[in-house]
């Protein structure tokens, strides 16, 4: 793992404690990855190798699972994670235009992070607030009935 500044080591220790406390290691890969992403924010190669060793499964299996599920990410997220709901309800009420505006304003594509690490952008499937469609989120905060011209002021709140 040629890594490990002090802060990283603490994170690995926390993950190891979680794994050691599991009653069984069999079938717990996804649960462990959820926890790992919660601790590290994303799942870089080193973390995947660590998980594979601790659970005694091949790294290829860990990578296979990480790359299969959209919830897991191998890239670090920005300080503010911006999500645009692309569920059908939001789509028919114009979510595409909101996403397009964010794309222009942040000059990144969905799945990317701005070079200064401040914003990352993603589209997701239905947050379930269809009554407020179209919906975008900054972190956990939900903004409803968003129009492209609201994007500027929402981004300005992220200071």
């Amino acid at each position: 793992m040629g890594c490990c500044s002090g802060a990283d080591q603490e994170k690995y220790d926390e993950l190891k404690r979680f794994i050691d406390a599991l009653p069984t290691k069999q079938g717990e890969l996804i649960r462990v990855l959820h926890r790992a992403q919660g601790i590290f924010g994303y799942l870089p190669r080193e973390v995947q190798v660590f998980v594979a060793r601790e659970l005694e499964v091949p790294v290829s299996k860990v990578y296979g699972v990480v790359s299969f599920y959209s919830y897991f990410t191998m890239k670090p997220k920005g300080k503010y994670e911006i999500s645009v709901c692309m569920g059908t309800a939001c789509y028919v009420r114009g979510a595409e235009n909101v996403l397009e505006e964010l794309r222009k304003k942040l000059a990144i594509e969905p799945g990317e992070t701005t070079p200064d690490g401040k914003f990352s952008l993603r589209s997701l499937r239905c947050v379930g607030a269809c009554g407020l469609a179209p919906v975008m989120m900054v972190g956990d905060k939900v903004y409803g009935r968003v129009t492209p011209d609201m994007v500027d002021s929402i981004l300005a709140e992220c200071e």
Binding site: L29, I30, R31, H34, Y69
Partner: peptide
């Protein structure tokens, strides 16, 4: 916990996912 895969609504896929695959 699921991890965001639509196909996991299919019962055999769901079971594989519950087994950590």
């Amino acid at each position: 916990f699921g991890a965001g895969a639509f196909v996991c609504g299919e019962e055999t896929a769901l079971i594989h996912s519950m087994e950590g695959n």
